[in-house]
Amino acid sequence: MKETKEIRQSTTDPDCGFMSRENKQEMFCYLDHRTTDMKFNIITDSYVTPGNVHDSVPYLSRLDRQTERFGFKVEAVALDSGYLTNPICKGLHDRNIYGVIAHRRYHPTKGLFPKWKFTYDRERDLYICPNKQELVYRTTTREGYREYKSDPKKCSQCPLLKECTRSKNKQKVVTRHVWEEHKEKVRLNRLSPSGKVLYKYRKEKVERSFADSKELHGLRYCRLRGLRKASEQVLLTAACQNMKKIATYLAKQG
C-alpha cells in the first residue's frame, strides 16, 4: 500500500508553494533563483519556482542555460549552504568549475556521536569508530549511499554503545554517498585562501542584489497571481536593476 502525502495548496493562488524552512516564516510564496556576475553584479539569470522547491533543484540546469545561451566561460561559483548537495558538487566537478559552498550545519540525534566522529579510511574503504573498531562496506542503496556496518558482537561489549547507536541489534550503520569525494573537495575549496576571498564577494554581490530588489523595487511581495505573472515581475525587476548598474558604470567612465 502506497503512503499518501498531504500537500498544502493555496486557495487564492494554486501555483505558489508552501515554504517551511528553519528560522524562516512559513508561508505560501514563490522563490527567485538568481545568478549574478562577480565583476559588475549584473543579473545573468532569474528563475521563479513555487516556494516548496528546494534551491538546489534547478541550479545545474540554470547554470547550463547561461553557458549555452550567453557563451559564458564559468571558472568559479560561490553558493550558500542550501546548495551543498552531492549532485551539485558532482555537477561542478564534471563542468570543471571551482565551487565554493558555505558549510551546512547538521543536527545529529541528541546523545549520539555525530558522523564526523567516525574516521573514513580511503585506502581500505572503511570507517573507524571512536572506540577504534572497523565498520566495513556491506551494500549500496538505490539512492546511491554506501552502507558501512559494524560487528554486533563487538558492539555489544563496547563501553560507548549508548553514545553510538540505539539499534536493537546493537549494530552501527554509517552511510557515504558514491559522490561524497566531490563534496569533500568543495569543502576544501571553501577553506582555501582563494575560496575565502571568493565567498566573501557573495554577500557583497548576490545578497546585495536581492536586498535591492526587496527594498528598492518592491519585490518583497507578488503583485499578481500565478507563476507566469510572478516570473514577469521578477524579470522586469531584474531588467531595471541591470539598467541602473550599466548606467552607473557608463557614468563613471565619462
Rank of each mutant, 00 (worst) to 15 (best):
R21N: 13
V178E: 10
K203G: 01
H182L: 00
L236E: 00
Y30R: 04
L191I: 11
Q233E: 05
Q9L: 13
Q157V: 11
A211W: 12
R8L: 15
K90H: 05
A78C: 05
F40R: 07
R142C: 01
P114G: 14
H177W: 09
K245A: 07
V100P: 03
K149N: 08
N169L: 11
S61T: 12
E22P: 14
K205P: 01
P152N: 08
D80W: 12
M27Q: 10
D13N: 07
S56H: 11
E181S: 13
M38C: 13
H54I: 07
E75W: 08
E6F: 12
K162V: 07
V74C: 09
G218R: 13
A76G: 09
I7F: 08
N96Q: 14
C158D: 01
T35F: 15
N169I: 04
R166G: 10
Y30T: 02
S56I: 09
H54V: 02
K132W: 14
T11K: 15
F72R: 04
D212L: 11
D121N: 03
F40L: 14
S150C: 06
E207V: 04
G195A: 07
E147H: 15
S56R: 06
K185N: 10
L126Q: 12
S10N: 09
K168C: 10
R190K: 10
R225N: 11
L160M: 12
D64S: 13
K5S: 07
Y137P: 00
Y47R: 03
F72T: 03
K2V: 08
V234C: 07
G91M: 01
P114V: 14
F18I: 08
F72D: 00
H33W: 09
R187N: 02
R190C: 03
T140S: 01
H217G: 04
K170E: 07
K132C: 03
F18W: 11
Q133A: 04
Q66T: 00
M19A: 06
P108V: 12
P50M: 09
K2P: 03
R220Y: 08
I101M: 03
D32L: 05
Y221A: 09
M19C: 07
N96M: 10
R122E: 15
D121L: 00
P87N: 14
K24D: 06
D121Y: 08
T119G: 00
L224H: 04
H182A: 08
L216K: 14
Y148S: 03
L250M: 06
V57P: 05
N52I: 11
Y47V: 09
L112G: 07
R8E: 12
G71K: 12
D94S: 06
K245L: 10
Q233P: 01
P14T: 13
